[in-house]
Amino acid sequence: MSLLGEQRRELIVEQVRERGAVRVSELAEHLSVSEMTVRRDLDVLARRRLVDKVHGGATAVGELGSERLGEPAGHGTDEPEFAAKADRERREKEAIAAEAARLVEPGAAIGLSAGSTTWRLASLLARVPRLTVVTNSLVVADALYSGGAEARGSTVILTGGVRTPSEALVGPVAVGSLRSVNLEIVFLGVHGMSAAAGYSTPNLTERDTDRALVDAGQSLVVVADHTKWGGVGISTIAELGEADVLVTDDGLPEDGRAVLESEVGRVILARPGT
């Protein structure tokens, strides 16, 4: 016998309070309902402030717990806020950033897209002297400034534009400014990557800005942890083969590694903790 809506929602709240964070998929299986039904229940509970709805599930109220869900990259237009994804796969992103930073020589002109991996990369690049860095990310720019980039003779250029939940600046102003620059290397963070959809984003407007950034660079380096494999955002930024280098981590599934190594010029597998 199926549960009534209120009974189901009471069980969801109980699960969230006991575990701190739960996935939509787990709740759907536990309650024998569709994931769409669970998402609607979470909407109701979030409005009542009984849970916090986050990317992939729900957490106890007041906890920044989306990273605890361990969700892989999502689909469609589901765009988590920057704070909700900043600590997901932290060790992997730190290792990826360290490998990517080795590709940058002092005095280079580079571009950094918005994203939690490019944010970690920015902290390392702040130590490289005499860079010119163009970015459409508020947090990336802040990481460069706070890391002492200006003291090392670097110049940080922020595109301007309309702010998104991922702390990106997008829209005509951002696109227009990117069309006026020429960069040696562009580092691109992505929401998902797949054989069918390439590198993608859940934000249509952000796609246009990311594409303008890609077009401004002589070389494209995609930085994406292994959970991004199989993720498909609503809009494709670039095809897999457009990347000259992909920096990911050794958690990448074998099938993903085979596809990417056949499409991308160079695949670097970072090893967290080494």
Rank of each mutant, 00 (worst) to 15 (best):
T117K: 04
A58G: 03
R17C: 00
H75Q: 14
K85V: 15
G76V: 02
S219C: 12
V140N: 01
G233C: 10
T227R: 13
G76H: 09
L4P: 00
A126F: 05
V33K: 07
L183Q: 05
I237A: 04
G241S: 15
L183Y: 04
P272S: 05
V259A: 13
V134K: 09
V247P: 09
I110S: 04
T205N: 07
V214I: 08
G65Q: 08
E254Y: 04
A108T: 03
V33R: 07
H191K: 04
R179F: 02
F82H: 14
T209M: 05
E67T: 04
L11C: 02
G107I: 03
P72A: 04
L31M: 10
Y145G: 01
V51C: 08
V104C: 08
L3V: 09
S262I: 01
F187I: 01
V181G: 01
E35N: 05
T135V: 09
P165N: 09
R88E: 14
V133R: 04
T201A: 03
S177I: 00
A46I: 00
H30Y: 12
L124H: 07
R19K: 14
I234L: 10
E150K: 10
A108K: 14
I157R: 15
V170C: 06
G160Q: 15
E6L: 10
A46H: 13
R211I: 02
N136C: 13
G148C: 09
L45F: 12
R40I: 01
A73Q: 11
A86N: 07
V44Y: 10
A224R: 00
S116E: 04
G111Y: 08
G189N: 08
T155H: 14
A212P: 11
S219I: 09
D78Y: 05
T205G: 10
T159N: 05
G251R: 15
G115R: 11
E89D: 15
V38N: 07
E99G: 03
L42P: 05
E14W: 11
S123M: 13
R179V: 00
E35G: 01
L4I: 04
Y199K: 03
F82P: 01
R19F: 12
T227G: 00
S146L: 12
L3K: 02
L178N: 07
D142S: 11
G56W: 11
R23P: 03
S200N: 08
S2A: 13
L158V: 15
G251W: 11
S2V: 05
V139I: 05
A143D: 02
S200T: 15
V33A: 06
A60W: 10
G20F: 12
I185P: 02
V173M: 14
K53E: 13
G161W: 13
V214M: 13
L240S: 02
V247F: 09
E261H: 03
H226E: 02
P106K: 06
H75S: 07
A149P: 08
A95R: 03
D250N: 13
I12S: 01
R91V: 00
